[in-house]
Write a protein that binds this DNA or RNA. Structure first.
Ligand code: ZN
Ligand code: ZN
Ligand code: ZN
Ligand code: ZN
Lengths: 178, 178
DNA sequence: GATAATTTTGTTATGGTATAACAACTCAAA
DNA sequence: TTTGAGTTGTTATACCATAACAAAATTATC
C-alpha cells in the first residue's frame, strides 16, 4: 500500500474538498484486495482496473463512461464487460450505485457493512457518502410502524456542497460590487 | 367529482391495502384540475389521461408502459409524447419519479409541498408514500453540518409490506405443517 | 501433468430508458 | 387576424442494461 503524501490540488478529478486523493485510491484498492482474499473472490485485471477508474474521482461514473476508459486501455469494449465488473464490485460492497444518476461510486467504507447515504452536489457532481445511524434507526422504526420490513435503502440527497456554495457566494459578491 | 363508494377488492390494480381506490383516483384528478387552474396550467387530454393511467394502481408505472397504454387509446405513440406528459405532471407535483425503479407514481398529496419518501414492496411492488418530518429535519441538519445546502431528497426504502409479510408467514406455516 | 469442473471473459443481439431537434398545430391574447 | 406562446407530431439518436451462448482461463481432482 503506497501512501503518497504529496499534496495535490486535483480539481479536475472532482473531489469534494482539498485532500490527498491518492490516499483514497490506495486505501480503497488495499481494502478491495484484502476483502477479496478473505472471501475467496478474484479481483481480476478488469475488475481491479474498473475499481481504480471509478476511484479516479469522487464523482459517480456511468457504466458507459467506464466502458470507454477500459476500451482505451485495450479491454473488451462490449457492455457486458463493464456490467460484469460493476456487478462484482457491487456484490463485494466495493462500490455503490447512485440510483438517481445511474452511475457508480467507490465506497470508502467497504470493510464495514453499511447502507449508502449520499450527499450529491448539483454543481460539481461530487458525492459524499455519510453515515447517520440515527436516521437509519428512525427509518426502520417508521417502516416497522406500518408493518413494513425494511431491506434496502436508497438515500440520495442533492443540493450545493460547501465548496460550490462558497463559490456561488463569491460570484454573487463580485456581481453586486461590479 | 364522481365518488363511487363501491367497495372494490381490486388486487390486480395493485393497492397496498383493501381500500376504495376509486376514491384515490377521483381525489387525485380533482386535485390536479384545481391546481392546474390555480396555476394557469393546462391539463390537456394526454396529460390528464396519463395521470389517470398512472393512478390505475399504487404501483409505479414505467414510461414505456404508460406509452403503450396511451397508444392503445389512439394517442401518439412516440416517446416524447409520454415524457412530455410526465415532465408536466412532475413539474406540477402531481406525480413522483421512483428513481430506483425508473417509474412514476401518482402523488396523493399534490396540494401540499413535500418531498416524496417511499416504502416500496419487493414482492407486490406497491409503493406507499410516507411523510416523516423528523427525518427530513434530521437530514437537513446533517447536511448543514457539512456545509451542504439541501435541495432535493430521494428516499426510497424497499422491503416487504405488511400484506406480503403476512402472506409469506402464512405460506411458511402451511409449509411446516404439511 | 492430464482431465474435469467452475469461473471468467468474448461476442452478438436485443430490450429498456430518455432526450435532441425541428415542424406542425392549437389556442389565447393583442 | 395577426402574433406569439404553448403544445403536439415526427424522426432520429443517445444512453442504460441484460440475454444467451461460445471461448478461454483458472482451479480442483485424479
Ligand atoms: Zn479522494
Ligand atoms: Zn459542489
Ligand atoms: Zn388507492
Ligand atoms: Zn407487498
Amino acid at each position: 500500500m503506497t501512501k503518497l503524501h504529496s499534496h495535490q490540488h486535483d480539481h479536475d478529478a472532482g473531489h469534494a474538498h482539498d485532500h490527498n486523493h491518492n490516499h483514497c485510491i490506495d486505501t480503497a484498492l488495499a481494502t478491495a484486495e484484502t476483502l477479496c482474499i478473505e472471501q475467496g473472490q478474484r479481483l481480476t485485471k478488469v475488475r481491479r482496473r474498473a475499481l481504480e477508474l471509478i476511484w479516479e474521482s469522487h464523482r459517480p461514473l456511468g457504466a458507459y463512461q467506464l466502458l470507454a476508459k477500459l476500451a482505451e486501455e485495450g479491454f473488451n469494449s462490449a457492455p457486458p464487460t463493464v456490467y460484469r465488473a460493476l456487478d462484482f464490485l457491487l456484490a463485494a460492497g466495493l462500490i455503490h450505485k447512485v440510483e438517481s444518476m445511474n452511475a457508480y461510486l467507490g465506497c470508502a467504507h467497504a470493510d464495514r457493512a453499511h447502507k449508502g447515504y449520499f450527499l450529491i452536489c448539483d454543481e460539481c457532481h461530487n458525492v459524499m457518502e455519510f453515515d447517520y445511524q440515527d436516521i437509519h434507526a428512525a427509518l426502520i422504526a417508521k417502516a416497522a410502524k406500518q408493518g413494513f420490513e425494511l431491506r434496502a435503502e436508497t438515500i440520495e440527497l442533492t443540493g450545493l456542497c460547501a465548496d460550490c456554495k462558497a463559490k456561488a457566494t463569491d460570484a454573487a459578491a463580485v456581481g453586486t460590487s461590479a
